[in-house]
Design a protein around this nucleic acid. Structure first.
Lengths: 229, 229
DNA sequence: TCAAAAGTGTTCTTGATACACCCATGC
DNA sequence: GCATGGGTGTATCAAGAACACTTTTGA
């Protein structure tokens, strides 16, 4: 079965910049293309949008198919529409970015995503299409958004230490932060709940674990509260 | 001539939320639809993207065709892809927003845009499709962006008074601002150049005219300067 | 002389920055 | 006992908020 239109139409894809954080490095999940064009090259997970699914649905479906990821934080980023961005024909890409907890991902990785791999943002390989532009745009967006929205927690496990949180912000913003000032500020929001557990790794004092109180944040946000790092 | 594809394809449009400012009110430019669906209803200027033009080009072309506007500040906003947003078939809209100096527009309005009209953002008529959502998204973006980028000047004539600038910010942000603090702050950036002219309207003291020094801003921005209101 | 908007400084409060030492643990 | 990261408080400085009166013009 085929489909005929009066005027030529662009093809429509979604692509996802998946960010992860591990051991004080911000990473991006890439897949190795199995088909031409750019066969063998690294690229963002993504693919064609079905005519009866939303952009968000398409992005999530492609993520699951290509990387095994489900139920992640996902947001639309920008639509890339340069005329020759795909050598075959006119193809638009509605780019998204996702934030995932790397540990959640480990389990799925083994089964679903044989050819997916994490790369540090500072050491990306050459990417297919205009995907390098897309990653750059996503990084800029992440750097901007992490300062006034508590989305960083999407990159951390549910229980985390203040040092982990600080290292995350330092990795994203590419700056060093003062330990005491950082702790004062993030604890000042009253959104970090200390748990009855500590994390004991390495031969030094164990660290207090916290969780982010998402419910409390939602309530505060409704009353005009502004998270600002 | 017709075009055939293996899988069905969504149609692709651009729509523009054109903001203007006049007499202390923020306005949006709407056109009255000449054709079904939603014939006679007010809607955003916009239309189908040609297969060989960029999204930006398409948005500018449609703006010129439907409203006579040219050379305006224009930025991509968000891509709206709900499956049933157009009753005819699947149609995506890559929404943009534009900022125009209303006086620039007056001249063209007479000739080109018989059925275009400005509406205060607070008193919009019912809009076609999901255009009300698009306007709401654009307004939120404008409110966010105006605080850390000097885009407000795009809505003012080249020569303006500090009161006009303040009223603009008050209209966009929907808050009252303190006159002395506002002046102190905007003049503190050193980006407003006082002119040898004053504006004399009404029976009261004439106001100093300023222009925005865009060149200086560009240079400062490169050195990491941050405009922040 | 009155109405109407333009213009102008200081005080107070708040948040940002800078900075150094003791603590708990494993080896 | 020593190396390692965890944890804590204060003093200074800069920016934001609050606030009222004089000036210039046209009618």
């Amino acid at each position: 079965m085929s489909h005929t239109y009066k005027y030529p139409r662009a093809a429509l894809t979604v692509d996802c910049v998946v960010f992860g954080f591990d051991e004080s490095e911000l990473k991006v999940l890439l897949i190795q293309r199995a088909l031409d064009p750019f066969k063998g090259k690294w690229a963002l997970p993504g693919g064609f949008v079905h005519v009866n699914e939303t952009l968000d649905d398409a992005a999530r479906r492609e993520l699951t198919e290509e990387t095994g990821l489900k139920d992640v934080f996902l947001e639309q980023l920008f639509t890339f529409g340069a005329v020759n961005r795909d050598p075959r024909e006119r193809v638009l890409s509605v780019a998204h970015y996702a934030l995932v907890k790397q540990k959640d991902y480990q389990a799925k990785a083994a089964t679903d995503a044989a050819n997916a791999e994490w790369f540090p943002v500072s050491m990306l390989p050459k990417l297919a299409f205009d995907h390098a532009d897309i990653v750059a745009t996503a990084l800029t967006r992440l750097q901007g958004k992490v300062r006034y929205q508590p989305i960083g927690f999407e990159l951390l496990p549910p229980k985390f230490t203040l040092s982990e949180l600080q290292h995350l912000y330092e990795a994203i913003l590419e700056t060093a932060l003062d330990k005491r000032n950082f702790r004062k500020k993030v604890q000042g929001f009253g959104l970090l709940v200390p748990l009855d557990e500590t994390q004991m790794i390495g031969r030094h004092r164990p660290a207090q674990l916290f969780r982010f109180d998402a419910d409390k944040y939602k309530k505060l946000k409704k009353r005009g509260f502004n998270f600002e790092l």
